[in-house]
Amino acid sequence: MKVAVVTGASSGIGQSAALQIARRGAGVILTYSSNEQGAKDTVSRIEQLSGTAAALHLDIGDAATFPAFRDAVADVLRGTFQRDSFDYLVNNAGFAGSAMIEDTSEQEFDRLTDGLFKGPFFLTQALLPLLVDGAAIVNVTSNSALPHVTAPGYSVYASLKGAMVVLSRYMAKEFSARGIRVNSVAPGATRTRFADDAFAKHPEIIPELAKTFALGRIGEPDDIGMAIAVLVSEEGRWITGQDIEVSGGMNL
């Protein structure tokens, strides 16, 4: 059985990616930060699909915890999957933050940098020894890093997601010696708990926002989760080093 590690899978895109990968027959080790109940729900839904899953706590903004997390992953691999390695890594965990450049504090800049760039960088580094040759990695970026989706207030967030796009390409180059493929997906606005559950709290913004999508609606988690599952699976075997916008033609 193939095994995936999916970070930030207690809700939204990460939860969908975990479920879609499980539907294709892989076991899943998923992580959560504060939403333990959401992680349990993801595990339960995978088990309802006759799949196998386990949830581990991870603070993506605290790189000092990554060696212990790697050990926890190794323990689950041995205990649950009778494996000493895994096949797919989805770096999805992260958080939002917005402020105009003139109002951005150094503390907030560092918080976002730790969670959105330093975290995925060093987590991938920590987990590399557990990844099989021929593995696949998907990093979740954002179309806010693309020229046609520049929104005031997201300079730091979008810049860090842009850094992840570049990092993904370098990972694809360096890890290719082991046959490991690396891609990134760039979602547009998607109905998740992101940005303090903004869409649930302010549903009135959705119809107007939907008009900016060529396909006439905002994204749903499964729109992104299915794309991630395809990229890590056999169907994506000849795709590497790409940043793929998955946004229904936002601002097309």
Rank of each mutant, 00 (worst) to 15 (best):
M1C: 01
A4H: 07
V6A: 05
G8T: 02
G14C: 01
S16Q: 07
I29Q: 05
L30C: 06
G38A: 07
D41T: 11
G51I: 01
A55K: 07
L56G: 09
L56P: 06
G61S: 14
T65V: 00
P67S: 01
F69I: 01
R70M: 04
R70C: 03
D71N: 13
D71H: 11
A72S: 12
A72K: 00
V73A: 09
A74D: 08
V76N: 06
L77F: 00
G79L: 09
T80F: 06
F81H: 05
S85V: 13
N91E: 07
A93W: 03
A96L: 12
A99D: 13
M100Q: 14
E102F: 13
F109E: 09
D110G: 08
L116H: 02
P120K: 03
F121N: 10
L128A: 10
P129W: 03
A145G: 04
H148N: 13
T150S: 15
A151Y: 15
G153D: 04
V156S: 10
K161S: 08
V165D: 12
L167N: 04
A172R: 05
R178N: 05
G179S: 05
R181I: 03
R181M: 05
G188C: 08
R191N: 12
R193P: 15
A195D: 11
D196M: 12
H202R: 14
I205L: 12
I206W: 07
P207S: 05
L209D: 11
A210V: 03
A214Y: 06
G219I: 07
E220C: 08
D222M: 04
I228R: 00
I228H: 00
G241I: 01
D243N: 15
S247F: 05
G248H: 04
